[in-house]
Design a protein around this nucleic acid. Structure first.
Lengths: 240, 240
DNA sequence: GTCACCCTCTCTGTATACAGCTTGTGAATT
DNA sequence: AATTCACAAGCTGTATACAGAGAGGGTGAC
């Protein structure tokens, strides 16, 4: 599976890009966000080193940072793995995200610059388009882009950073707990609604709508305490 | 300055403790919390390695983690330093902390176990005692202990973790911006009040009181845009 | 057939070596 | 006296070597 990265990496090297720990962190983060790296995936240092063409020193630094971000878990003398939070932690992540992203929405409400409004509109339009065409991967990417943009544009950058972390962790738990058969987590007009309230609503309205949006998202997951399945996936997991 | 650590470290080694990156992270975190390491202090890898009796590999891992925690800042090819946030970031840290710790207080309100109540009471009593005796260092330690205990006991551990980070960052900015002449940041009955509301108040009341407490704390700082002083301290700084 | 043990292989933890960048110092020049 | 240039020292970035922990498989005894 990481073999598919090889080519990208080689391209980037030829493009003169610098391969360092930042690069590796970005690549892995992105792979987790787009659910190309499922929770529980093994991430041996030597393997990653070969893929990215660097020594273990660099890989280790990248992994340490990813552990701090809660994207990767590491136990002493064991292979690092993509995190796979349990159900309780999942609920806590959503609760935390409601709190933080609700506040970010409130801070942004009524204060969007024309450029910001336009950018959000563009992303949401593309998301809608992707959905129409059934291009699921692109739709997910756009959906994430909406929230990541809000995190980036948060007037309070500390909150913005915290939100960026929570978005990442949310992606992981969605990959873990999305209902089988449910092709996607798509709430049709939510993002457009949200944009309207950010543009012309009160902070309280924007906050409430955001919190509702996130609760709806959480409700699409299957968070009942069904023992077997998750642990199996996580522990036997690998990439197979 | 770090020489004072030497002895502690040697003791710990003889006590059979394992010196690893976790140990170093804890020591530095603690030194920052108790304001023994002022913002801007240089932290060269080799020096830390000698002090703790480990190689740079271990020190580098510890520093990477501290950077992720926003306790230390690192620029390429430059010595790591204790973070020294600017005034704007300081305000953002306080705003974020009001949001998070307010929520934690709300979650805890009316749900304190007898053991939790007792422990908080004990810490607050010791804080009061330390204040009476003019033992400033101990009072600060107790004051921090109150908030750290709340972070630890947060029913939502994700929020708890975020709060722990914010407490650390708050300590740093207090060290940076506390008013000269103002010996301490002590709000006499705030913690006792808070405990009362956590015990018998509504979530909303506890949240509001916590937010107020944090705003009062922020108000004790000197956050006017006075250029020179801070940058001087941070940049010329060192430990001198 | 099953269980226990041992061996091997893989992977991580740590130390160390070397290369390159950055900064400060001192001399030479204007 | 001020300025610039060059050299030297201090530190970081990266690679690599080696030791030790863990997991899995195979073999032997019961």
């Amino acid at each position: 599976m990481p073999t598919s990265w090889q080519d990208t990496v080689i391209d980037d090297i030829h493009a003169g890009k610098r391969i360092g720990d930042q690069y590796i962190v970005d690549m892995i983060r992105d792979a987790v966000l787009s659910q190309r790296l499922p929770p529980g995936t093994r991430l041996p240092e030597a393997t990653l080193g070969e893929i990215f063409g660097v020594s273990r020193s660099v890989v280790r630094k990248a992994l340490t940072r990813l552990v701090a971000d809660h994207v990767v878990v590491q136990q002493p003398n064991q292979v690092a793995r993509v995190a796979s939070p349990d159900i309780e932690e999942t609920k806590e992540i959503f609760a935390a995200r409601r709190l933080v992203e609700g506040e970010v929405a409130a801070l942004l409400a009524g204060k969007l610059s024309p450029a910001q409004h336009k950018e959000l509109q563009r992303i949401i339009a593309e998301e809608h388009d992707a959905h129409q065409q059934g291009d699921e991967a692109r739709r997910v990417k756009c959906s994430l882009a909406v929230h990541r943009y809000l995190a980036d544009q948060s007037p309070n950058r500390v909150l913005g950073g915290m939100l960026a972390d929570l978005i990442l962790r949310t992606s992981i738990v969605i990959a873990l707990y999305k209902r089988a058969g449910m092709e996607a987590c798509y709430l049709d007009h939510d993002h457009a609604d949200l944009l309207n309230l950010l543009e012309s609503g009160s902070p309280q309205q924007a906050c409430d709508r955001m919190r509702q949006h996130l609760s709806d998202l959480e409700a699409l997951l299957d968070l009942r305490p069904q023992e077997g399945r998750i642990d199996l996936a996580a522990i036997l997991g690998g990439v197979a």
